[in-house]
Design a protein around this nucleic acid. Structure first.
Lengths: 146, 146
DNA sequence: CCACATTGATTGCAATTGCATAGAACCAAA
DNA sequence: TTTGGTTCTATGCAATTGCAATCAATGTGG
């Protein structure tokens, strides 16, 4: 049913996996070097922050970040412990939490961004033209079509 | 020194990170479903297997897989415990280990490949033409140039 | 309304990973 | 050949992740 992939495809796959890891490692390392928490913290804060009223259900975070449910749960534990988000009861669904970003959370996100951005630019943006970046995004988009 | 990336670049970056994770998760899930160990096991076995005489130093594994040094060490512990590779003293360098793949290791790798391959094909290969795959690999290659 | 499957969140326990360090072998320069 | 730096591997300990349940709230079909 599924034929074995062509060498071209295998090569492209390997490039994808290796390159992504190499780049993320470099970007993460920069964040760590500057004393910031891991990228996942940023991504969660970002998703909550950009949601209406700075609120988002845990399940929403899960969808947007692709983290496993129990990982979201425990990452939120940590964020909450640090005072970066709050968990509130959801009025519409008794099972859900609504996460609310705090001023401290917003502030951390704001401070992380320039460092994250510099990493993206150095290792990624600076190596592609605008057309190439678009082309890349276009190709990647084809891979997640439903 | 590092300007903030353009929206196009940020979008492409986000696509890269998200897409890679989504695809790897799907492929890993298939392996798990069929009772196989994680992808990293495969990658290590693969690298050792394809090296001359089925031997490779641990440091070589580290270079090729981009795993952290201590992770290679402990992953090799597990592989060794399962009888998939052996650690031997390196005759040329007293610090090094040489990993040797066993028959069992080769066998596992061989059995994992069709499952891995089917995952690559389903989630990746089948969604791209040969030209697109090449294009993608080309773009990714630009990102790791020294 | 009553099962019964589903969804959202949590948690105990085991496995893995990250961090910091150690220690041995090698290497290069004086 | 001694000193000091670097490479390669290993490990104790803490943090994170994965797995497999559990539990409560919803939703659904009869």
């Amino acid at each position: 049913m599924n034929a074995t992939p062509s060498p071209t495809v295998i090569d492209a796959w390997a490039s994808l996996v290796r390159t992504e890891k190499a780049l993320v490692d470099k970007v993460e390392e920069r964040l760590k070097r500057e004393g910031f928490p891991p990228l996942d913290w940023y991504h969660v804060l970002y998703e909550v922050d950009r949601s209406p009223q700075g609120m988002l259900r845990q399940a929403g975070v899960q969808d947007r970040t692709q983290l496993a449910q129990y990982n979201v749960c425990r990452l939120v534990d940590r964020l909450e412990r640090e005072g970066l988000v709050e968990r509130r009861q959801c009025t519409e669904d008794g099972r859900s939490n609504v996460l609310v970003i705090t001023a401290k959370g917003r502030d951390l996100r704001r401070k992380m961004w320039p460092v994250y951005a510099a990493g993206i630019e150095e290792h990624f943006g600076a190596r592609l033209t605008a057309e190439e970046a678009q082309q890349l995004a276009g190709l990647l988009a084809k891979l997640v079509a439903t």
